[in-house]
């Protein structure tokens, strides 16, 4: 009888590849059905579980490529990116990068990796920590502290995305395919993804607002972030952008930047 570790390694090899079952077969009492067929039940169950996890996380990718092609992608993803957690919520983390590196996926659907990325960010937003905005973070903006020296604490669910494609319009269209299809020459899109009242929300935003949010996410002050926004568009309006974030509860607090010693 092999040791427990040897046996589990043999079983894992048989799960990974049909033709690597010979190591574990002698340890199995296969009966009339046979050890290989019995191992196949587990192999199929594992593949189905992994496929379902990806389908649940990437419904728009599934809608865009269809079930048979999605399943082929899922099998190859599973071979190249084995699960590293007992929690399947983590399983799709590398799926957008995998699609990006799969010519058979992105040649016919060039925006597919960006859609996958958007869906993964939606998953992150859905599962992110809760945060209750300060009673009225706007007070800081009228307090004695120079508002441009403030840092913003953003809602933990807030994610941002920049794409060379109209990715938010395509994603909306996947949800309502009866609507007119977006045109790829509608150009690049930036947007935000977050959670509000338990539901994931998303919206396209101006590239300058995207640069502003990215700078805040990187720990910059309002002044740093405003400069990032103005670098994209000289008409960037700090107060309008801030109000948009505050109205959605996406800035939960402001803190003054520590003075340099």
């Amino acid at each position: 009888m092999p040791s427990l570790r040897e046996l589990q390694r043999g079983f894992a090899a048989a799960m990974a590849m049909h033709d690597r079952a010979e190591g574990i077969v002698p340890a199995i009492d296969g009966g009339a059905i046979g050890a290989s067929a019995r191992l196949g039940i587990y192999r199929n169950a594992i593949a189905a579980t992994r496929l379902r996890a990806l389908e649940d996380t990437f419904p728009a990718v599934l809608a865009l490529v269809g079930a048979p092609f999605f399943e082929r992608l899922a099998v190859r993803y599973s071979d190249l990116n084995p699960s590293r957690s007992g929690d399947l919520c983590d399983y799709g983390a590398r799926f957008p990068q995998f699609i990006e590196g799969s010519p058979e996926a992105i040649e016919p659907v060039p925006y597919l990796a960006d859609i996958a990325n958007l869906e993964w960010l939606r998953q992150e937003a859905a599962l992110a920590a809760d945060a209750v905005p300060a009673p009225d973070p706007r007070w800081c903006l009228t307090a004695a502290v120079d508002p441009r020296r403030l840092r913003a604490t953003l809602h933990p669910s807030l994610r941002s995305l920049r794409s060379a494609f109209p990715v938010f319009a395509i994603h909306r269209w996947c949800d309502t395919p009866a609507a007119p299809a977006p045109r790829l020459d509608d150009g690049p899109e930036c947007g935000l993804i977050w959670r509000a009242d338990g539901e994931v929300a998303e919206t396209a935003i101006h590239p300058a607002s995207h640069a502003f949010v990215e700078a805040l996410r990187g720990g910059g002050t309002l002044a740093d972030a405003a400069a990032a926004g103005e670098s994209q568009d000289e008409l960037f309006h700090l107060r309008d952008c801030l109000d948009g974030l505050l109205d959605r509860g996406l800035i939960v607090d402001f803190t003054p930047r520590a003075r340099n010693p």
Binding site: L4, L7, A12, Y42
Partner: peptide, 25 residues
């Protein structure tokens, strides 16, 4: 049951051998 070996998770309830080693573990 078991579900992971060498860092790879199979996300299933896989059978154990009914041995003294497995029981002790």
């Amino acid at each position: 049951s078991w579900g992971a070996i060498d860092g790879t998770h199979w996300n299933d309830l896989l059978p154990l051998p009914h041995t003294r080693e497995a029981a002790a573990l």
